[in-house]
Design a protein around this nucleic acid. Structure first.
Lengths: 150, 150
DNA sequence: GAAGATTGATTCGTCAATCTTT
DNA sequence: AAAGATTGACGAATCAATCTTC
C-alpha cells in the first residue's frame, strides 16, 4: 500500500490546473492579440481597466492593485504606454502626490479594436462551454480572486 | 441608451477574473512558499511534475510543455535548480539529443516539505468552497487548460 | 532538414531605496 | 511618519540564432 503524502492532495492538482490554464490561455491569447491588434495583453488590461473605471481614470496605485503588479512595475508599464501615446498622466488637483492615468484618443481606439479581437478569441476558447458552465466558472473565479491569505 | 461594444462582453470579464485570480493567488502563495519552504513556486512546480512523472524523470522539452515555458526558459530554470542541487541532468541512452531531469535526494526532500506547506495554504484558500464547488472548479479548469486556439 | 537543447541579447517586472506631498 | 510614485540594480523569461544528433 502506497504511502499518502501531501503530494497526493487533490487541492494541489486543482491549483496546478489554474496555473496551467492561465499560462496556456494567456500565452495563446497574448500572441493573438499582439498579432491582430498590435498590443500586448498587459496593455489591453490597462486600457480596459481605465475605460471601465469611474470617470475613465485610475490612479497609479489603483491601477497597480487591479492589474496585480507592484507600483514600480506599473510606473514602467505606464511609461511605455505613454511612449506609445495610448495613455496620459494627469495630476490630481486635490492631492499632489497622486497621478491619474487616462486614455488618449488613440488609446480608446486601440481598446475598442483589441476588445473586438480578444472577444472573438474568447468565443473560440469557451466554444464548448454551456451557458450554465460559463456562469459557474465566472462565479467561482470571482470568489477565488477575492481570497486573501491570512 | 448606451452603445454596446465588445468592451461589454461578459467573456472579457470571466477571462479577466481568471487572470486576476491567478495573479493574486500566485503572488500570495508564492511568497508563503518562498518564506516557509525556501523555494519559488516555479521550482515547486518542476519538482512536483518530475515527482509525478513516469519513471520520475522528464525530458527538457516535456518539462517545458508541462510548466508552460519556452525551452530556453526551462534550460535556465533547470540550471538554477542544479546549482541548488535539487535536480540532475541525466543523458538519454537511446537519443543523445535528449536530457532527462531527475530529482536528487535533497530535491525529493524539498518537494515533500514544500508540498506540505503549499497544501496548508491551499486549504486556507479554498476554505469557503464546498466539496461540490471544488469538484466543479477542478473540472472546469481541467477542460480550460486543454483548449487550443486554432 | 527537423528535433532537442543551449546561448546572447533584450524585455519586463520585482525589490529596496528615495523623493515629494500629506 | 505614512502614502503615492519613481528609480537603480537585479532576476527571470522570451526570441532568434546556433549547435548537435537524429
Amino acid at each position: 500500500m502506497a504511502q499518502v503524502t501531501a503530494v497526493d492532495e487533490p487541492l494541489l492538482t486543482t491549483f496546478g490546473r489554474l496555473v496551467e490554464a492561465h499560462g496556456r490561455l494567456n500565452k495563446q491569447l497574448g500572441r493573438s492579440l499582439e498579432a491582430q491588434a498590435g498590443i500586448p495583453y498587459t496593455w489591453f488590461e490597462v486600457l480596459l481597466r481605465i475605460g471601465r473605471s469611474e470617470g475613465s481614470r485610475l490612479s497609479m496605485s489603483a491601477l497597480a492593485e487591479q492589474v496585480v503588479l507592484t507600483s514600480g512595475g506599473v510606473t514602467r508599464l505606464v511609461d511605455r504606454m505613454i511612449e506609445a501615446e495610448l495613455v496620459q498622466r494627469v495630476p490630481c488637483p486635490s492631492d499632489r502626490r497622486v497621478w491619474f492615468v487616462t486614455l488618449t484618443e488613440p488609446g480608446e481606439a486601440a481598446l475598442s479594436r483589441a476588445a473586438t479581437v480578444h472577444v472573438e478569441d474568447l468565443k473560440q476558447v469557451f466554444r464548448a462551454f454551456s451557458e450554465p458552465d460559463l456562469r459557474r466558472l465566472d462565479t467561482l473565479l470571482d470568489r477565488l480572486r477575492e481570497v486573501r491569505l491570512t
